Computed example of a mutant assay.
Amino acid sequence: MLMKNYFFLLLVLLAFGCTKQEQSQKFITYNLRYNNPGDGVDRWDARKANVVGLITKYQPDVFGTQEGLNGQITYLDSALTDYSYVGVGRDDGKQKGEYCAVFYKTAKYEVVKQATFWLSETPEEVSVGWDAALERICTYLLLENKQSGERFYVFNTHFDHIGELARLNSSKLIYSKITEHNPEKYPCVLMGDLNLTPETAPIQYLSEVLDETKSLAGENCSGPQGTFNAFKHSEPVTDRIDYIFISKGDGVVNQFKIIDDQIEERYPSDHLPVFVEVVL
Rank of each mutant, 00 (worst) to 15 (best):
A230H: 08
F245V: 15
P224T: 07
P236Q: 01
I241Y: 10
I244N: 07
L216S: 10
F245L: 15
K248L: 15
K232L: 11
F228L: 13
A217F: 04
D239M: 09
K248G: 14
G223F: 08
G223A: 11
Y243E: 13
I244E: 08
E212F: 05
K232V: 04
R240S: 10
F231W: 07
H233W: 07
Y243I: 14
T213V: 15
I246L: 15
G249M: 04
I244D: 12
D239I: 04
S234H: 15
Y243N: 13
N229W: 07
D250I: 05
G223W: 05
E235Q: 11
V237Q: 01
P236A: 13
Y243T: 12
H233V: 02
K232A: 11
K248S: 15
S234M: 06
E212R: 12
A230E: 02
I241L: 08
T213A: 13
R240E: 05
T227Q: 08
F245K: 13
G226Y: 06
G223V: 06
N220H: 14
T227C: 00
T238H: 01
S234N: 15
I244L: 10
T213N: 08
R240W: 00
A230K: 12
D239Y: 09
Y243P: 12
K232I: 02
S222G: 15
E235Y: 05
E219I: 10
H233R: 02
D239C: 08
C221Q: 11
F231D: 04
P236M: 06
G226F: 03
F231T: 09
N220Q: 12
P236N: 01
D250V: 07
F228P: 00
S247V: 10
T227A: 09
R240G: 01
I246S: 15
I244R: 05
T227N: 07
T227K: 02
F245R: 14
D250K: 15
F245A: 14
A230V: 02
L216H: 06
